[in-house]
Amino acid sequence: MAYQFSFEAIASNWELLARGVALTVVLTAIGSFVGIIIGTVGAVSRAWTLPLLSQVFTVYIECVRNTPFLVQLYFIFFGLPALGVKLNGWEASVLTMVINLGAYSTEIIRAGVMSIPKGLLEAAESLAMNRWQALRYVVLRPALKNVWPALCSQIVIVMLGSSVCSQIAAQELTYAANLIQTQTFRAFEIYLTSTLLYLMLAVLVRKCLNQIGMRFIERRKA
């Protein structure tokens, strides 16, 4: 029995898929942006063992790194309402992404901060900069530059992982694919398409992130 391939289901639902792609991108962008900010604060707290903050971040990172993404998502979406925090699927997904990338980027950026030779910090101090000025103007950019490739990989991993957000009805790419599949039963065509879309997305996002790295972190004139 020969299976009749038909991409009609995709063609007539392309808007749904496009919307899914867009939401996956937005989800990843917000997660990365806020996550990296949290990660920077966490990295400095841990690298300089700031009282209280460094302990808080240690607990936070251990919790996130040692539990599955899907469980975190369920906890936030199904669990938090018990505490009066009611989020819709989209909000819960954004929050989970931020929490996730915040934790992973803390560890990655911390490695970057630790990779900066002590001499650079001492040079900054000897020029009468305080610790925060030294951090902002001397440590941060070289630190981020050193770990940017690792950070990019983590962002792509989490973007691909965000497909499970479809489980709580966040209308990202996998949700769109699932929806079309239940309406048309064209599983092969649809999941082939969504697979290719994820592949393309991953490649494009990596390219974009490299550009961002060159532009804002490397920022060399020559």
Binding site: P117, G119, L120, E122, A123, A124, S126, L127, A128, M129, Q133, Y137, V138, R141, P142, K145, E218, R219, R220, K221
Partner: peptide, 28 residues
């Protein structure tokens, strides 16, 4: 009041020579 020059130079690698010199007067 007390400036220091180190054995290992310790220039800020992400800044040009000019920016290295300008940084502290600007931010401090």
């Amino acid at each position: 009041k007390v400036g220091m020059v180190f054995q290992q130079f310790n220039l800020f690698p992400h800044l040009t020579a000019g920016e290295n010199v300008m940084l502290a007067p600007k931010v401090v």
